[in-house]
Structures are given as C-alpha cells and as structure tokens.
Design a binder for these strands. Structure first.
Lengths: 217, 217, 217, 217
DNA sequence: CATGAATGAGAATTCATTCAT
DNA sequence: TATGAATGAATTCTCATTCAT
C-alpha cells in the first residue's frame, strides 16, 4: 500500500480525490447532525473538510445529494457494526441483552445517527428512498438476527412464543433512541439531567429489564 | 360574547390583536413542524397566517421567540389533554392501558408535536429552557399520575413493585414516538408501510402488551 | 396629480414601488443591452437602479423574468412610437420615405433595442413567446399601416402592384438594423467608420432610395 | 497521408496537437454560437471537444482568445466560400442573383455565423480588431467583386449607374441576415413561422427581386 | 501532450429583519 | 394595529483559471 503522505497522519493530503471526498463526507455528517439539513451550511462544511465548496458540488452535486450520501454512509456504518455482533453464537437471553446494550451504546457513541434519522424523517424519507435503489437491502439482516434469537429462546422455553420480531426490533431501538434523542427536552420536563452517568446507567438497566420482561414466558 | 367583526365576509378579523397572534401561532406551528426551525420561513408563516411579517416581530420579537412560543403552546396543549384523562378514577390495569393508548393517539393526531420536540432537541433544548421560567412546572403532573397508578397496582398485586415511574413514563412515550416519528425511514428499512391502518393497529396493540408485560408481577 | 418628492426631479424617491420598479426596468434595459442576458449582472442592475437585488426578485421573480419585462417594454415603446407616425395622413411616397426614416432614426437613437432583439433571438424567442400571451397583438398595426400605404400607392400609380407588405416591412427594418447592429464588425471589414456622421447620412439616403426602388412601377 | 492513430476505436486521436486544437475550435464555435460569449462555458467546450480545459488554455490562452480564434475562423470560412463563387465568369444579372442566393444559403446553412457576428458586435468588435492585425485584409475581395459586377452591368445597360458597391453589399447581406437572425422574434411578431420551407422560399425570391430592383436602370 | 484536482472570486437567489406610511 | 417597501447579510451554486502528476 502506498503512503499518501510522508508527514503526519492527520495532514490534509493533496490531489487525492478519495481522501477529499471522505473528508467532505465526514465534515458534512458532523454539520448535518448538528444543524439539520436546512440549518447546515455548505460553506461551513467546506471549511471543516479543509476543502472548498466547488469540490462538494463536484462530488455530490448539491446539498441534497450530499445529505443523501451522508445518510447512506450512516446506515451502512450501523449495519456493519450490527453484522459484527455474532449474536447467533450466544445463548438467547445473553444475545437479547447484548443486542439491547449494543443499540444503546451505538446511539450513545454516535449521536449524529439520531439527528440524521430525525432530519430525514422531517423530509419524509425522500433521500433514503433514493439511496435504497443504490444500496440494496437494508432491513433483512437485523430482523433475521432477532427472529433467530426469538426462535431459539422459544425452543429453550426462556422466551414466550408469538412475539413479532419486527415489533420487538422497533421497540429495542425505541427505548434507547427516544431517551437519548430527547435528552434535552427530557431534562427540562423531568427535572433532572438525563445525560449524567448515573442517569444513563439507570436507563440502560431499565431498558434491558424491559425488553426481557416483554419476552418472559 | 362580543362580535369581532360586523361584516362576516372573511374569517380574518381586522384589528384584533388576540386573533392575529393566535393565527400567527397556528401558522408557525404548522411551518415549524413541517420544516424545522432552520427550514421554516417567516414569509411563509406570515402568509399562512393571513397576516404580515411585521406583526410577527411585533408579537414574538424574532424567529426564535416565535419558535419558543410555539413550543410552549405545544407542551401546554399536551399537558391539558393529559389532565383530562382522569386516570385516578380507573383501575390500575385499565388506567395504564388508557395512558398508553392516549399517548399513541395524541402523537398520531398531533404529528407536529413530534417534529417540534425533535427540532428543539436538535437545538439542545435552549428554547424550552427559557420557556420553563415563564411556564412553571411541566413535569410533575404526569409523573405523579403514573406513580399513583403504579402504587395502586402494586397494592392490588397486579403490578410488580419497584418500577421507576419516570423510566416507565419515558418508555411509554418512546415506543409510540419512535415508531410514528420514524415511520418514513422505517418504511424503507423494514420494507412495509408503517403508516397503513393495519400496521398502526398492530403497533398500538404491541405497545399495550409490552408496557403491561413490563409491569407484570 | 401628486408630487412624489419635493426636491430635485432625479432624486431617488422613497417607498414608491412604481418608481422603484421603473428604475429597475430602466437599469436592466441598459445592462442587458450592453452585455446580453448571460453577461448582465443582477448586482450591477441593482446598483444602476439605486435599489437592491431583493427588489428585483420582488418585482420580476428572476433574471429571465426581468429580461422578459425589459423586452416587453422595448417592444411596447417602439410600437407606441410607430403609432404616432400618422402615415395615413401622408401621400404614399412621403409616407414610405417617412417610415424608412423613422425606422432608421429609432434604431439609431435606441441602439439597445437592436441588442435586446439579438439576445432574444439567441435564446430562440422564449421570453417573447411568454410575453405575447400577456401583451396581445404585436404585429398587426405596423403591417396594416404598410399595407394601406402600398394600396394607396398602387391606386395612384406610384407603386407597382403585388408587393408583399410583410416582406417589405421586414426589408425596411433589415437595411437599417443590419448596418447599425453590425457597425463594429462592419468597420473592421469594410475599412471605414460606419458610425461617422457622413457614413450614417450616406446610409439612410441609400436605404430610402433602395426601398423606393423596390416599389417603383 | 499519415495515420493519426493505429487503433481505430475512437475518433479522438491521442497526442495530436493539431487535431486537438481543431476539435476545440469546432466545439467552441458551436458553444459560442449557441450561448454567446458570456453564456458559453469552458467546461462545456472541453467536453464537446472530448478534450479538457487545460488544453484550451494551452492553445488559446483564455476564453477571449478562444472566441477570437473562433471568429477568425468563421470569417475565413465565409471568405473562402465567397472566393469560390467565380462571379466574374457570369453575366451581371446572373452574377448578382448568384451572389444574393449565395449569401442567403450561407447564412441559412451556417447560422452560427450570424450569432457569432452578433456577439462580436455586442462587444463592440474588440476581438475582430485584434484578429485583423494577424489576418490581414478582410474587406477587399468581396467589395471588388461587387464593384466589378456593377461596372459590367452599367456598361451593358442592365444596371443603373452610381450605385455604391459597399452600400449594395451591405444591403445584400442585410436582407438575408435580418430575416434569418431574427426568425424567432419575427415569428412571434408577424404571426407565422418564418423558418418554414415555404416562408424561406418566399423570402429568398423577394430578396432577389429587391436587389435587382435597386439596380434597375 | 494530457488529465483530474483544486481554488477563489463571483453570481443568482433567499432570508430575517427594519422602516415609512 | 396593519402593511408594503426596503435592505444587507448570507446562502447555494457556478465559473474561469491554475496546479500537480
């Protein structure tokens, strides 16, 4: 593999279209996550990316195209992370616990994902619909994983039968997503800091208990 | 009751500051809900309100002030609706079911509430924090209601003890909010229309079962 | 009639939408005439008009809308001028001479008209087509005027019969338009200054002789 | 004749500076003719030429240099075509008819010439003035040709004496140029399609008659 | 000779906000 | 109170031109 630059790693490489594109994408993800699609500024993204506006239009056509690329990338990242979970190697109860924890941790460490998804839903999913055509399947793997765990758990008698894997998957996401996404309004409404370490620990514990309770035979 | 206008030709009253303010607020709610804070346009709001920009600045100072007012109004509305539930008059199981149903129905019929809350969280809750000072308590009533139901349920042996009413309240909101808010990306990812009547019915049924399962002794 | 401003005539009036629109239109006509549609600058037009860009978009929507308005105005001006000619009151030979002279003089004193028409033809007439719907008839009066003169001249035996009034009208415009419009390249190609007073006089004389020669019985 | 490329796969030769220059010039002529100098895009020209922007700057320095080269080429082409007419071998009346027809046909088949000339006049002939120094004489041949025809016609008694050959040459161009160049606005104004085969035929007939009428003794 | 990457100035258009009536 | 006019700062997007390979 060829080294692009002799000097320090973080330095801006020159004349490297792949690297430039990647820097723009990263910068855009941060900007869109922070300010939404309408609030994000092309100028600001170019600056964050240590590039310039013209390159953004070269690689992504326009603001919507850039947002779509960011969204695609975000979904691919979470799917890749999910794939690495290897839940089929765990016992059903452990696997389910692992999945709830993973979801929580992912949202906690990648808060941009939440706001990007919100933005996209504000726009009624138009960008993701376009991306779907170029991305192929998005839904199958996760649902299949959950379905398998449920089946094994039912067979072992540790889960009750008849639970819909899609509904369960949605709820697993819901209990983490809602809490973390709305932590600011939540802190005002409920009167305590939802983002404190203690509060976070309490929530993940509660979520695991909740999901397992839903499955208790 | 005082007639606002002698000529009944137009709904829009002339020189009625209260009515003008109300029309602006309603228009702004629709605009902010549809496009977010950054995406909303003052011009568009003035037009929707059959008023003009100057009035918006007269009554709300600036765009952020208007957003804050909209948010305040939205929270007051949901609180008012909650207050009318009279859950204390129902048996614990029925009360809890009623609460889950109410939450679902409210979000379903007032989708603007979801996007407004999202927008506000994108901005880290700054507007709501300011509003809190002028609005007084926001959190207590709902939590108290849930806490009472839990206590009665535990006393009757129908709910397990030790469930945190705040965590439960959050989860009740979460399972409805997440599904409805993300119905567009969800439809792409899960491969079916999350907003179809059948899908909606299936989801509310699942949510009621889930919450009750969390409380089963 | 109300005076818009007490002070000097050329001063920029305040808060007078008609006047602002008119100033913009005038400025745009000069800019488009000098640089064409693509070469014209909105910034420059706003400055010339002593207004600002926003007003241009308020009154004319966009650059094309502004160009269309300018074109409409230019055609209306020349039509108005034509209408004042009262050729029907002159003898056929005099009327025809008058018409050729008028055309020449109008082009000479309103060179912007030539370049605007050129620009519009570069764009295949799209703006004028749109304007036609809002402007109504454009062609009839001039042709009718020429046709009447021809008829009277034929009746009097001073013009030969069978001359097509439309073709003649076009040629009357052509011999002046081409010379004046292409006076810059012409000066290079033919090796003398086509815009000198003597050259101009020679050309209008030639044109009158030419048109009359076409009609000689 | 030397083979430019061994592999006949693509028309575009590799590493052939003459051919590249020619392709750029051709592409630029089309682009400038369609959009004018200000409206033309360097990017678009490079693409049309199957070359790249760098080459344009290599061969023509900048946009104006390219425009100048295009203009030079266009004038050289029409001069070459004129030279092939051999009007001196024809009788005066036939020679004159031939010249009017040629002018019409050339404009009809090379409409880019009209728009290029217009563009250049919009810019007051600056490019052509520069080109003149490098091109030498441009005007003489055509005028001389017309002058000769006139002289012979006068001698034979078929043309009236005293007609200025330059004015006549200009009018011969004018009656064709104006009609064809302004066919789009003309179609709107006169209410019929000036570019239909019948209309074109009617016009060239009229033009021949007109020019001959001007010369009738 | 050839090419893709990069850039900075600029161009059209938009927007929140203020002013004058 | 109400309204249309006006403004200047952004904002998205474009373009001619240059650089590095």
């Amino acid at each position: 593999m060829v080294r692009k630059s002799i000097s320090a790693e973080k330095e801006k490489p020159v004349r490297d279209s792949e690297a430039t594109r990647a820097r723009i994408l990263k910068a855009a993800k941060a900007e869109f996550a922070k300010l939404g699609l309408a609030g994000a500024r092309i100028d600001s993204i170019a600056e964050r990316a240590q590039s310039n506006k013209r390159m953004i239009y070269e690689y992504f056509d326009n603001k919507d195209g850039l947002f779509q690329a960011v969204l695609e990338d975000a979904y691919q990242n979470i799917r890749n992370a999910e794939r690495k979970l290897k839940l089929q190697e765990l016992e059903p109860l452990q696997a389910m616990t692992r999945l709830v924890s993973f979801t929580w941790d992912y949202y906690l460490k990648n808060p941009h994902f939440l706001t990007l998804v919100n933005s996209e839903n504000l726009y009624k999913g138009v960008h993701l619909k376009k991306a779907r055509d170029t991305m192929g399947e998005m839904h199958a793997p996760m649902i299949q994983m959950v379905s398998d765990i449920l089946d094994r758990g039912v067979a072992q008698g540790v889960f009750k039968p008849g639970v819909d894997p899609i509904q369960l998957t949605i709820s697993i996401a819901a209990v983490s997503y809602y809490y973390l996404n709305n932590r600011f309004t939540g802190s005002v409404i409920y009167g305590f800091d939802l983002a404190s370490p203690e509060a976070l620990q309490a929530r993940i514990d509660f979520n695991i208990q909740s999901i397992l309770a839903m499955l208790r035979p």
